[in-house]
Design a protein around this nucleic acid. Structure first.
Lengths: 167, 167
DNA sequence: CAAAAATCTTCCGTTAACGTTAAAGTCGGG
DNA sequence: CCCGACTTTAACGTTAACGGAAGATTTTTG
């Protein structure tokens, strides 16, 4: 079914602007690099380094050229740390994932934009799906490994407890 | 209850020598560093490095001073890699864990040796138990994180599939 | 508006976990 | 016992992910 002129299918969550904490003038509060680093639990150097690698660009800059971070930026930092700690990925691998996330977000936006062609839309969705599925596989593998590791540990703990109780 | 002169409690698996693949003369086959590295899926350098850090000493040496690795040695290598990949521990942290494993193994051997003092034995067991329990906690935490990560991924995949099916 | 505090860019330093190469010694088959 | 393949130690090199300091600039604060 074509999607050029308004689909009939129940539209999946239109991309709403998301509720924000505006200030009086209506802008979201932006953080300096110091505050952002503190909030995110990383160093300023790390933030600059992520930017250098193209993982994270601050949402805004002052006239003088100082970085200003938004809440979304902080979430992105959290994501980076999670991927580092949880999956042991390096920053280059993480960059790939984040770029794909960004693409998917773009797709979601473009999804409601009639200028986006059906074919292109479909191609992008398939691409995202493939990537997500691949990632799922590696995560699942790791989870299984962790699980059996946990069971071994439990067995070991039981044995130790047993030896102690027998004294 | 004292353990100086033979315990009454049902003895937990006496430390049996474990079934080995002996050769004709009764020795287990030992591998050269090249073969060991190949089997373990690591480089020779890595094996030498682990030894340098005190993580892994080859079970034997030739007269000339060349390293000979046993199957247990290879298992130890596997353990090292597992702790690295799964938990993201560094080699120093792994060294601590392995040393504790070794101590625990010694205790199991000494279990039937009356020369080992009760107090000392108990202290060592408690120590191992503490370490294992701490480790369990961190592993559990990590597993939970991985799990929720996996669920997020699944949700994302579902959404993508949905968008595709609607075309 | 002036001083203090925070940031900017640039560049060199650091640590972990090996990689690589060189020179010398050891092993195993013929 | 000889030679080619494999190992040894020692030493220097490499990469990732920042750490830290310098000197200039910007922002904030009294």
């Amino acid at each position: 079914m074509s999607r050029g002129g308004r689909s009939i299918a129940p539209a999946p969550d239109p991309p709403s602007p998301a509720p924000e904490r505006h200030d009086a003038a209506g802008h979201e509060p932006l953080l300096s690099i110091g505050a952002a680093a503190a909030q995110a639990g990383v160093t300023e150097r790390a933030l600059r380094y992520y930017q250098e690698l193209g993982l994270l660009a601050p949402s805004a800059h002052t006239k003088g050229g100082m970085r200003r971070y938004s809440q979304k930026d902080l979430e992105r930092v959290a994501r980076i740390r999670e991927l580092q700690a949880l999956l042991g990925l390096n920053l280059d691998e993480i960059a790939v994932i984040l770029r794909n996330d960004d693409r998917t977000a773009e797709i979601r936006l473009a999804y409601f934009d009639d200028r986006t062609g059906d074919v292109e839309r479909k191609r992008l969705l398939r691409e995202s799906l493939t990537l997500a599925t691949e990632m799922r596989a590696t995560v699942e593998t790791k989870r299984q490994a962790l699980d059996s590791f946990l069971h071994d540990l439990d067995a070991r703990i039981d044995r130790l407890r047993h030896l102690l109780d027998e004294e």
